[in-house]
Nucleic acid binder design. Structure first.
Lengths: 158, 158
DNA sequence: TAAGATTGATACTTCAATCTTT
DNA sequence: AAAGATTGAAGTATCAATCTTA
């Protein structure tokens, strides 16, 4: 890729440098705030919350492992380990898939639905406090567009 | 805090929801891209790169542990573990502080300076490819302002 | 007692290797 | 051989406990 070569010799402008520093600090701290709050109030790491939230939206609260991993953009390995843990907590169950004996289906249990319901409001409060209450409506739109632009750029390595 | 109570019963608007999803995906993937590239090309986790980069900017490439941890907004424990590892790699050294025998001073070694110099261009290329080449100049300014606004909101819990 | 720093335990992520079924 | 999924090892993060010096 030619752009890659160009980028190698390029430097960041002062504007880019200060933006990168501010962005990195802000996103790191938001991540930490979310994780800390979720962990303190509900004993759920954010990554696991996202897994359960995805299941909640699925028909019958069920999804195949691979499908779930792809939806969340995480590795199968990671999902497998996480599922072990969530199963141990009783929030999730693994069922065999009758149509393909290689496949497994993860299913949110009633306890899982409850845990999610209890964690939800606090999590949203964290988001509002740390993100949305700090931004104007226009900034929220800008952040959306910026994020879409950033996202499209990723994951395109050979 | 009253805002906290208000936030608890509040829901995210559709605009906020899609923004949060896009933002979370984009920031996660950027983090992963940075870590992967740094690890692949230079065997340095991003967190360790940041520690060394901070030392590089310090007078004589030296800082006290506490000072360094505060500058980076990380815990002393985390810095201590990281310093163990970096010392093992020969990129950093621990010296006693003559003026306060409780204190330790971390110092970037010549090998550390070299490792940083080798990693730098690739790391900047990653940032350019995944972030700056995707944004207009105006979006870079917007992202800066948004990040500053977000950052101010954090770390104010009791 | 508090400040500076380290330690150990536990938990999460990543990577490569493996196993089974298609 | 490829797809679906799991496993184990190694690395990093977090938290609470500890140790030493001020």
């Amino acid at each position: 890729m030619n752009a890659k070569v160009e980028n190698k010799s390029r430097r960041l402008t002062a504007e880019e440098q200060r933006t990168w520093r501010a962005y990195h600090l802000a996103s790191t701290r938001l991540q930490e705030a979310i994780d800390r709050d979720l962990q303190r109030h509900s004993k759920i790491p954010h990554a696991y919350y996202l897994i359960m939230a995805m299941l909640l939206e699925a028909p019958k609260h069920r999804m195949r492992m691979t499908e779930l991993a792809e939806s969340l953009l995480i590795s199968q390995s990671r999902l497998s380990h996480a599922t072990d843990r969530l199963q141990g907590l009783g929030w999730v169950r693994r069922d065999a898939d009758p149509s393909d004996r290689r496949a497994n289906v993860v299913c949110l249990t009633d306890a899982g639905v409850r845990a999610l319901a209890e964690a939800g409001p606090g999590h949203i409060a964290t988001l509002v406090e740390n993100l949305f209450s700090r931004l104007t409506e226009e900034q929220v739109r800008q952040l959306h567009d910026i994020s879409i632009a950033m996202f499209g750029a990723l994951g395109q390595e050979p």
